[in-house]
């Protein structure tokens, strides 16, 4: 069964209006891998993430994660299978405290009923305490522990990106999808982010799948790459293989430059 664990995507096609945003995509992630998904703007990378996490319905194809079929499942069901994601445009609960952001992500681990929440039963107290401790642990890990009570919107841009990753980690995911985690970060923050990705991957035994435009980051951290253009997979393999792939260079730099070189 070892080879069926991880994520298998077969023949995934997503149609948005008249546009085939993704067509016939096949990809596979093995447990513990760190894989990148790259491609020019509008290639359909985020659409792939949306299709994987249930935010848009694919019109064909299958998504299987850890032997369970997640095709066409709503987002909250996908999340319960320990598949967490972040968003390209940060989607924090900006008005709430940093700690509350994390406790909301802990939701699936709460087992007490609405009634025992209202009656403040022993279950309520013990589970709330556990959630608090776990959230603080994660905050410690990403280096935001001293901001726990602050409003999430008051964090710096880099801090908000980190908090979004922390929030995904509270779900105790097996697969983490990061949508442009380094967007808008300065080189220093990006370096910090790379360390963080390595650290959480190791500590949580995670599989990481990330979309990124920062080629330095991609080439440094990713073990394998998938390259998407106009919704079609145009290249895959190790960083070296992708770098020398003609189709990829063509997509990024255009036909003429290729001829000149």
């Amino acid at each position: 069964m070892a080879q069926t664990r991880g994520l298998q995507v077969t023949d995934l096609t997503v149609q948005i209006g008249g546009l085939k945003a993704v067509s016939g995509l096949n990809l596979e992630l093995y447990p513990g891998e760190l894989v990148g998904l790259i491609g020019p703007n509008g290639a359909g990378k985020t659409t792939v993430f949306n299709a994987l996490t249930g935010f848009c319905a694919p019109c064909a194809g299958r998504v299987v994660f850890d032997t369970k079929d997640l095709t066409n499942k709503p987002p909250h069901v996908v999340a319960k299978h320990r598949l967490a994601r972040t968003f390209q445009n940060i989607r924090l609960f900006k008005e709430l405290s940093v700690l509350d952001n994390l406790k909301i992500a802990y939701h699936s681990n709460f087992k007490y009923s609405i009634l025992s929440g209202i009656l403040r039963s022993g279950q309520y107290h013990s589970q709330e305490k556990k959630a608090n401790e776990f959230a603080l642990e994660i905050l410690e890990l990403v280096g935001l522990a001293d901001r726990a009570q602050d409003q999430a919107g008051t964090l710096s841009y880099g801090g908000q990106r980190k908090l979004e990753i922390a929030r995904a980690l509270v779900m105790k995911p097996k697969l983490l999808l990061l949508d442009e985690p380094a967007a808008g970060m300065n080189p220093f923050e990006t370096a910090e982010l790379v360390d963080l990705i390595y650290k959480v991957k190791k500590d949580f035994d995670l599989t990481v799948f990330l979309i990124e435009h920062d080629m330095d980051l991609v080439m440094n951290v990713c073990e394998r790459l998938y390259v998407l253009d106009y919704g079609v997979l145009i290249g895959q393999g190790s960083v070296q293989e992708v770098r020398t792939n003609h189709k990829v260079i063509q997509a990024y730099l255009g036909e003429e430059l290729l001829c000149q070189s």
């Binding site: 999340a79 994601r85 968003f87 989607r91 909301i104 939701h107």
Partner: peptide
């Protein structure tokens, strides 16, 4: 949207 992605 974010709430959904967190399993709610």
């Amino acid at each position: 949207t974010a709430a959904g992605s967190l399993g709610i």
